[in-house]
Design a binder for these strands. Sequence first.
DNA 1: GCCGGTACCGGAGGTCCCTCCGGTCGAGCC
DNA 2: GGCTCGACCGGAGGGACCTCCGGTACCGGC
Lengths: 193, 193
Amino acid sequence: MTDETSSAAPRRRRADAERNRQALLEAARAALADGAAPFSLEAVARAAGVGIGTLYRNFPTKESLVAAVYEAQVTELIDEAGRLLDRLPPGEALGEWLRRFAHLAATKRGMLDALRRGVLESVQQDDVAGRRGRLAAAIAPILDAGARDGSLRGDVQAEDVVVLAAGALMPVEVDAARVERLLGLVTDALRPA
Amino acid sequence: MTDETSSAAPRRRRADAERNRQALLEAARAALADGAAPFSLEAVARAAGVGIGTLYRNFPTKESLVAAVYEAQVTELIDEAGRLLDRLPPGEALGEWLRRFAHLAATKRGMLDALRRGVLESVQQDDVAGRRGRLAAAIAPILDAGARDGSLRGDVQAEDVVVLAAGALMPVEVDAARVERLLGLVTDALRPA
DNA sequence: GCCGGTACCGGAGGTCCCTCCGGTCGAGCC
DNA sequence: GGCTCGACCGGAGGGACCTCCGGTACCGGC
């Protein structure tokens, strides 16, 4: 759809459009951080001094807006996977990564719903193959390493692990003990027979 | 809240109230079965010839309405657990029960969302200790039997199994192969070390 | 058969989501 | 600097969710 790749003229965005986009992101960030007050798109648009139509043009769904706000954190989580694998054996690296995944989901308001639609439902967007794909790609090296050294079974798709973990974490609100138990079950499922 | 148990006067419901309740259930059943057309509460109330307020008095949340419509199926699923245990070894009984659970969630429109809020989020209602509790109670005997004969580990709470299974199934739309793989992972997690 | 109290009814109204389209203004070209 | 045109703006509007409360009519007692 967009044209980053076509070599010709990238066709610069209009300055006001970019300004509005930033204002929306900032307003959304503030609204999500607020805590009280439900996260309302109309409120975000108002706070950004922009019409509701402009918001929807930039972020077609509520989830895409939330995802954009947390983009940096998600990227960080993805990069973390490689670093964990550098300094921990695969089995532990996976457990630790899942724990950070859980922490992110639990900490960031709205993240949970964004994940629900971005990771769990089928992904039809092609931005870097969707969030589910990005996360799966992040842990695939860990799974591979574990399969090689025998600490993890080798017959599991990375995508299934992401779906299972995300599904398991999804619902549990703030019950840290249960989160820990569920993650334990997930990693147990990945041990060789 | 209700009073079936208190021995005194059960205070009969008014006839029109009961009539309205049944009409709402019937309309909701039809709307859910329809398939096309989104499941709208206002449409249900209209179809039942009743004000929207009456709907909300009988079913405070959308999920409680859906749950009431599917009550029979859920009860059936719960009873099934005992029967499965009678004729299968615990490990297989659990796998089979999870499969039926998945089938119910996948088949019945709206069930999925009802489960999301009824099973996965914290349950504060006390009707039979909530849906999560009812389902956990259903599989607890299977887990116990498995722990006794060594085919399942004994250190897992029934509630956690329900949450994990429900979470894992929750999102996946109609990808039967993935559902099968995920259920396999769940049962793998329950095998003794 | 009638009457009073109250359990129950119904829909107006506030808020939100999301779409659609007439109007506007920024960017590049002369 | 001025002009053109299309990318971009903004908000009206329709549908849904849910609450709240003035009014209704059912039930039990007489």
